[in-house]
C-alpha cells in the first residue's frame, strides 16, 4: 500500500489490485453460495442442459461469462486510470472503479436492449 496523507494520490497499480480483488471476491462468494444448495435427486433430465454437474455448469458459465468479464475489466482498467489520479486512496479508487464499471456496463446493456 502507498502512503496517503491527503496530499498524496492513489497509485494505479494498487488501485487495480483492489479492483481485481473485488472481482475475485464476488466470483468466489457466488461459487461458494451456489455450491452449498442441494438439488432434487429425481429431476427430469430429458431436456438439454437441464441436469449439468457443478463442473459442467462452471465450464458453461466461464464460456458465456468470459466476454462480459473481459468487457468489465477493460472498463475497470480505464476508470481506475482516471480515478487513481484524482482520489487520495487506492482502496477507494479501486472500489469506486468496480462500482462505476458495473454502472457503465448496466447502462450499455440497457442501451443495447433499447436499440435492438
Amino acid at each position: 500500500m502507498d502512503d496517503v496523507d491527503g496530499s498524496h494520490r492513489a497509485s494505479f497499480r494498487s488501485s487495480l489490485l483492489v479492483a481485481l480483488g473485488w472481482y475475485a471476491t464476488v466470483i468466489a462468494a457466488a461459487l461458494l453460495g451456489t455450491s452449498g444448495i442441494p438439488t432434487a435427486p429425481d429431476r427430469d433430465c430429458s431436456a438439454m442442459f437441464s441436469c449439468l454437474t457443478a463442473q459442467e455448469q462452471l465450464g458453461l458459465l466461464a464460456l458465456v461469462g468470459a466476454p462480459f468479464l473481459a468487457g468489465l475489466l477493460v472498463i475497470t482498467l480505464a476508470l481506475t486510470g482516471l480515478l487513481a489520479r484524482r482520489l487520495p486512496s487506492s482502496i477507494l479508487a479501486g472500489t469506486l472503479s468496480v462500482l462505476g464499471s458495473l454502472a457503465v456496463a448496466a447502462v450499455a446493456g440497457a442501451a443495447w436492449q433499447a436499440a435492438r
Binding site: 483492489v18 480483488g21 473485488w22 471476491t25 464476488v26 468466489a28 462468494a29 457466488a30 461458494l32 453460495g33 451456489t34 452449498g36 444448495i37 482502496i91 472500489t95
Partner: peptide, 15 residues
C-alpha cells in the same frame, strides 16, 4: 473487512 464481509453477505444471501 473490505472483502470478507461482502463475501459472506453474497454467499449468505444466495443461500
Amino acid at each position: 473487512w473490505l472483502y470478507g464481509v461482502p463475501f459472506l453477505l453474497i454467499a449468505g444471501l444466495i443461500r
